[in-house]
């Protein structure tokens, strides 16, 4: 097993790096998009609510692989050229953002109506009330389920393997194919994913405890 690592060190490292890169980009942007659509879904204007509902319904209910394939095969043909890595990262971002939107929306809804009424009666605008009162409380509640989404996101980045995204899973397929050491290779790749997901889970739990104080 050790030999597989030493012989393919470069490939593993490239894959590891691309998985980190894809996950980081997708995490940041899915969080931004998720919070944005959650806010749109709870805001008074009906138009925004409908848009958010449609967005969430689409990206939450189609398999991740299909979304990625749309960006890999269809979008480049008609709109803009995308590499496998780009298509995969965009697909993963949109897919995850729909789940984050639902998580954050549930968090916002769990904050009692009284907090908003208190803030509005105190003269704050809707946006001020959201920013200073509702969202800070909602985000605190949402940290544990958000941690789940983030860990899922890192694991789901393996979808890049299907579109030549040069991530860990893609490299694993190549190595397994060339060495015939399928089991060992995938065990090694599993360990690489653990290097990412365990600290992430730990950090989210740490954040949860810190904010609970």
């Amino acid at each position: 097993m050790w030999q597989i690592i030493t012989n393919n060190w470069g490939a593993f490292l490239t894959g590891f790096w691309n998985t980190i890169l894809c996950s980081t980009i997708a995490l940041v942007f899915s969080l931004i998009l998720g919070v944005f659509f959650a806010l749109l879904e709870v805001a008074p204007p009906k138009f925004g609510r409908v848009i958010a509902k449609i967005y969430i319904a689409i990206f939450r209910n189609i398999p991740l692989l299909v979304i990625v394939m749309i960006f890999y095969l269809i979008v480049p043909r008609y709109i803009v050229k995308l590499s496998g890595f780009q298509a995969g990262t965009i697909g993963l971002t949109l897919y995850t953002s729909a789940f984050i939107a639902e998580t954050v929306r549930a968090g916002i809804n769990s904050i009692g109506e009284g907090q908003m009424e208190g803030a509005r009666s105190n003269g704050m605008t809707y946006v001020q009330a959201m920013r200073y009162i509702i969202l800070p409380q909602a985000m605190k509640i949402v940290i544990p389920p958000l941690g789940n989404q983030f860990v899922n996101l890192v694991k789901n980045s393996s979808v890049l393997a299907f579109v030549a995204g040069f991530d860990l899973m893609y490299q694993a397929q190549l190595i397994a194919f060339s060495t015939f050491q399928t089991i060992d290779t995938y065990i090694i790749v599993g360990l690489f994913y653990l290097i990412l997901t365990l600290p992430l889970s730990y950090y989210m739990r740490h954040l949860e405890k810190k904010l609970a104080k």
């Binding site: 009284g114 907090q115 208190g118 009666s121 200073y132 009162i133 409380q137």
Partner: peptide, 9 residues
Amino acid sequence: FQHFNLYNN
């Protein structure tokens, strides 16, 4: 308000 509605955060 009856239930105060202070900002909990």
